[in-house]
């Protein structure tokens, strides 16, 4: 069933299983370092020793409470959200065979956002569970539209640019309508203008715990379909010939992307570009096997969002720049460089 595709260009650092595993461990160490950094850095700098004491429950100072009550939740959220978004991006890119696919660019985040606006404006939803439900539904509908466009890709030669443009137009419609609704519902307007920035602060561990099962389910599906996606990378015809049933694979990917993006967006707001950048870097460094791509994306996506969040706390110190804004500022130039490279223009 699994096909280990090897492509020139990918896998600069490692290709065979043992080095790949070693590098993955290295990435996990990097993640732990980023977690520690995220616990230490902020409007008040806290020493690693105090952080450890606080985590072990040995300290009860103001600093320790800052770590436990403010920084631990946002760090956990950054790890969960970053990993989820990067895996979702890798899945969409593999399914549509489109290197530009990203939950943000294809309008999945906009779908989740639109549904949250509707829920807040017309159904008086105010709590986190209601928002999660709405965001999941919105993300699922938007991902299904992507699915539809993805299947169109098979019948006709709609290129990657067309897919991106349809996603963009679709996102613009949803954002426009959400904007119109918020103009007449001030309560929704107040909520959405903060939610839209993609900030990770002011969330509690209890809120993260509410979305965690959904994200774990999404990740499980992702690792389950990854071997089949290796075959899909060869084209739909060869994939079928290799015994991949495309229908269940597509459904699985759409379900996983909806879960991952919907749950993340419900809690953290629309965070763009993590899903675009990380799979690219991973493919470049570690090759094109989807199973490894999913594993590396989960770890490095978490690192990216942690670093973005920490950077956001530092650039306007003692103020903060929301993590979603930071990823856009880093990710967009990445996209432009990608488009200007010669190989990319022949997509």
């Amino acid at each position: 069933m699994s096909v280990s595709a090897s492509e020139p260009g990918g896998g600069r650092l490692a290709r065979s299983p043992v080095p790949l595993f070693a590098w993955l461990l290295g990435c996990v160490v990097l993640l732990l370092a980023a977690v520690l950094l995220s616990l230490m850095v902020g409007s008040a700098a806290i020493s690693p020793r105090t952080v450890l004491d606080a985590l072990l429950g040995n300290a009860h100072s103001v600093e320790a409470r800052t770590v436990i009550e403010l920084r631990v939740p946002r760090t956990v959220l950054a790890v969960v959200a970053g990993g989820a978004l990067a895996v979702a991006g890798a899945l969409i890119q593999a399914l549509t065979r489109n290197p530009l696919a990203d939950p943000g660019i294809l309008g999945v985040n906009a779908g989740a956002g639109f549904a949250v606006v509707i829920a807040v404006a017309f159904f008086g939803v105010s709590g986190v569970p209601g928002r999660i439900g709405a965001a999941l539904a919105g993300a699922a509908v938007a991902a299904a539209v992507v699915y539809l466009i993805g299947s169109m890709n098979r019948a006709r030669t709609a290129g990657p640019v067309t897919l991106v443009l349809v996603g963009l137009a679709f996102g613009a419609v949803l954002q426009g309508l959400a904007g119109a609704i918020t103009l007449v519902r001030p309560k929704a307007f107040t909520l959405m203008r903060h939610w839209d920035t993609g900030a990770l602060n002011d969330r509690t561990l209890a809120m993260v715990a509410q979305v965690l099962p959904l994200i774990l389910l999404g990740l499980a599906i992702a690792f389950f379909v990854a071997p089949s996606l290796n075959a899909v990378a060869l084209g739909d015809g060869p994939a079928k010939a290799l015994g991949v049933r495309l229908g269940p694979v597509r459904t699985g990917v759409v379900a996983a992307v909806s879960l991952l993006c919907g749950a993340t967006t419900a809690l953290a707001g629309p965070i763009g570009f993590a899903g675009l950048m990380i799979p690219h870097v991973v493919r470049w460094l570690f090759g094109v096997d989807q199973r490894w791509i999913a594993a590396y994306s989960a770890v490095l996506g978490a690192v990216l969002l942690l670093v973005a969040d920490v950077a956001g706390r530092l650039v306007l110190w003692p103020g903060e720049l929301p993590a979603g804004i930071v990823t856009a500022f880093v990710g967009a130039p990445f996209l432009i460089v990608l488009a200007r490279r010669k190989e990319a223009s022949g997509l």
């Binding site: 640019v161 203008r193 763009g272 720049l321 979603g324 804004i325 967009a332 996209l335 432009i336 488009a339």
Partner: peptide, 23 residues
């Protein structure tokens, strides 16, 4: 292709800025 993708990138930076000022 290049025009479209570069446009998406630049628009994304600006709309992030817009969102932030609005907030």
């Amino acid at each position: 292709f290049r025009l479209i993708v570069v446009g998406i990138g630049v628009s994304a930076v600006l709309s992030a800025l817009n969102t932030w000022i609005m907030a």
